[in-house]
Computed example of a mutant assay.
Amino acid sequence: MASLSICVYCASGTDDRECLDLAAALGTEIGRRGWQLVSGGGNVSMMGALADAARAAGAHTVGVIPKQLVHREVADTLADELVVTDTMRQRKQIMEDRADAFITLPGGIGTLEELFETWTAGYLGMHAKPVVLLDPFEHYRGLLDWLDGLRERRFVGDRALQRLIRTSDVATALDACAVAAGPGGNRE
């Protein structure tokens, strides 16, 4: 199979050991598979653990970061490719364009915003790339319960909810990316 490019959304502020270990495990597995990592370009928290582990396992890493965050000295200057943008909107567009699939790890409001934008675009047919929620610690349990309530009230349809692949296992998350992306990736 051709190399896939996996965009990962995750926290840039937590020091929770379980979450840092999850990010590192995902990065290691991306590298072990010979795939490329596209991330938010940070060198801190889960973003840093993810990128460091991916590089250590042989992955090519692409960090995409707005220049305002570079000036705060949180840029992953060890990235194989560091793309500096003027705005957050440009950052997200480049990350989406460079990815064959998306995985979301635990995170806060920025991570949620990235997940929802990518998920909504896929549901609306703007791309056919896999969108995976990797959540072994039930970080998103309340959100998923709320979404089920929206489905019951017919604010969200089954098809939209089925567009999000949910798993608690790193290998399963990456397998879903590989299967759904197909040979040579699935860029649209």
Score class of each variant (00 low, 15 high):
Ala2Cys: 12
Ser3Glu: 14
Ser3Gly: 12
Ser3Trp: 09
Ile6Asn: 05
Cys7Val: 05
Tyr9Ile: 03
Ser12Arg: 00
Gly13Pro: 01
Asp15Ser: 15
Glu18Asn: 14
Ala23Gln: 04
Ala24Leu: 03
Gly27His: 14
Gly31Ile: 02
Arg32His: 03
Gly34Leu: 12
Gln36Trp: 06
Gly41Pro: 12
Gly42Glu: 13
Met47Asp: 13
Ala49Leu: 09
Ala49Cys: 14
Arg55Phe: 00
Gly58Asp: 14
Thr61Met: 13
Gly63Glu: 12
Val64Arg: 02
Pro66Ala: 06
Lys67Thr: 15
Gln68Asn: 00
His71Leu: 14
Arg72Asn: 11
Glu73Phe: 10
Asp76Tyr: 09
Thr77His: 10
Leu78Trp: 04
Ala79Phe: 03
Val84Asn: 01
Ile94Glu: 08
Asp97Tyr: 02
Arg98Val: 09
Ala99Met: 06
Ala99Phe: 02
Asp100Pro: 06
Ala101Phe: 05
Leu105Ala: 12
Pro106Arg: 01
Glu113Gly: 12
Leu115Tyr: 01
Phe116Thr: 11
Glu117Phe: 01
Glu117His: 08
Thr118Trp: 02
Trp119Gln: 03
Tyr123Asn: 10
His127Gln: 12
Val131Met: 03
Asp135Lys: 08
His139Thr: 11
Arg141Thr: 00
Trp146Lys: 07
Leu147Tyr: 01
Asp148Ala: 14
Asp148Leu: 11
Phe155Asp: 10
Val156Tyr: 08
Gly157Pro: 10
Asp158Asn: 03
Arg159Asp: 06
Arg159Ala: 09
Leu161Trp: 02
Gln162Phe: 08
Arg163Ala: 09
Leu164Ala: 12
Ser168Asn: 09
Leu174Ala: 12
Leu174Phe: 08
Ala180Gln: 14
Pro183Cys: 03
Gly184Val: 04
Gly185Met: 09
Arg187Tyr: 07
